[in-house]
Design a protein around this nucleic acid. Structure first.
Lengths: 257, 257
DNA sequence: ATTCAATGTGTCATATCGACCAAATTGAAC
DNA sequence: GTTCAATTTGGTCGATATGACACATTGAAT
């Protein structure tokens, strides 16, 4: 993926190719086993985890930088992502720590290296279909795994905060962003959709009423196929009617006024 | 406010004191004559207008930079402000244009000056009480005025876009941010509050139902004082019950779920 | 006294909500 | 094959909220 030579070049000459004080961090959400998960990365030889992130090329927008990072991490194109907040505490970068890590890879690195400056980070949350992701590594990381939101490992810098804020943004966008569409497989059952809503909102919803409401929006379509395989009634398979779905989201799925 | 010497120092040495690729732009909203207004600034000797903005000091957060800009522009402390989006098109900065303007002030400026780099800007919207604002100038601007949203003057770079996005963020936050509180004077009448809602939402609301609903939230308090001065029944003066108001906003003023 | 807008209250049809029940359907157990 | 358990799906119903009006009253200015 990245050669030693490329990394060396990145460390030494990255300041010419990337914006020097700006980075992106991505909270990648997936949904599995009725749980929201986030994809985290472990720095090679370290025990703490970080969010997948990266720098902004001088020729690209911040959104494009985030898309690039996500593509490199998950192997997926066309990921839904949403900018939600800028994180800019002057001392958020843990420069002393980063210096040690860098020095391990590239012993002659100097203290005035561009990577050891202060970085302001643009926070994104991304939604992916859990099963489609193959967590990928690069030379700076030796692990890339899904973690349940309730059992997150120790995370570096302010990354834990970023996850929390991302979750809030996700909750806030439930009725106006295509969250169901991007987090579920193309075909899904009503109970699966409900379970997604329940985990994001953190509360139980009435099964019967939920179904009625979703169907009333007319954003779902089905051809009558069912998901068999268990000793119970086989639930119908639905998929989103994208045209109507997008239209409905523009108005917002609920609120008056 | 700023001496020639200070400006010269800013141009020549600002790159040591401020982040080199990051700025803030503020859409300052006020409410007057039943209209939303934004405070714009005209560059000295130019006819186009820009949003009040500024650079981020290496020791401050982006929020603090925005607060500083707002304070310098309006003379008000404790302004409510809300980050809403990052603007990062690589060519948004109109560097050629900026070069000409700079050169006018400071003829020996060079093309590699830090101000002529690409800037990513964090967009904020701010809410102020219209009457409390005294638009202030600095040496780079020769006018600072309120403009109605329907009659904005030509604006430089992507600032018109930023205003549009800010308005959408404002609308989206109407039920969860203290918008009424920050845009209206401390005491206000029910018709004034309704008019604010109507202009932000861009539609008429039923008077009777609006009043009933607002009072039902129990976020308003009154001591029975009225606003006299017109040939009609004097409307009651209300103010927000901050404790209940904040609590209500946390839940959101409307939606189910 | 007259005018005018603000306010308070009421109604009424309709929509929505939440809670609950009944019917239908599936694989598994026997 | 029949029965059973689990779960989906659809229907009911009362309580509540909404939106659109109507009507009476108030109080300040002139």
């Amino acid at each position: 993926m990245q050669s030693e030579k490329e990394i060396e070049d990145f460390i030494l000459n990255g300041h010419k190719q990337y914006l020097n004080n700006l980075s992106v961090d991505c909270v990648i959400f997936g949904f599995h086993d009725q749980q929201l998960k986030v994809l985290l990365v472990r720095i090679t030889g370290r025990k703490d985890w970080v969010l997948p992130g990266g720098h902004v090329n001088i020729k690209e927008t911040v959104d494009q930088a985030a898309i690039r990072v996500l593509q490199q991490r998950t192997g997926i194109d066309n990921i839904f992502l949403q900018q939600f907040q800028v994180f800019s505490e002057p001392d958020r970068s843990r420069i002393d720590w980063l210096y040690k890590v860098l020095k391990k890879y590239y012993p002659v690195v100097k203290k005035d290296n561009w990577l050891l400056q202060r970085f302001v980070s643009v926070g994104y949350y991304a939604l992916v279909e859990y099963t489609k992701v193959t967590p990928l590594l690069d030379m700076m990381s030796d692990a890339s795994e899904w973690w349940g939101l309730d059992e997150l490992p120790p995370m570096l810098m302010d990354h834990r905060t970023i996850v929390n804020e991302a979750l809030q943004a996700l909750q806030a966008g439930l009725n106006s962003k295509p969250i169901g569409y991007n987090l579920l497989p193309r075909k899904f059952t009503m109970p699966e959709l409900q379970s997604l809503y329940e985990t994001i909102l953190g509360k139980k919803l009435d099964r019967s009423n939920f179904s009625r409401k979703m169907l009333a929006y007319e954003i779902l379509k089905t051809n009558g196929d069912t998901r068999k395989g268990a000793a119970r009634k086989a639930p119908f398979l639905y998929s989103f009617d994208l045209i109507k779905y997008r239209k409905a989201l523009k108005e917002g799925l609920n609120t008056g006024w």
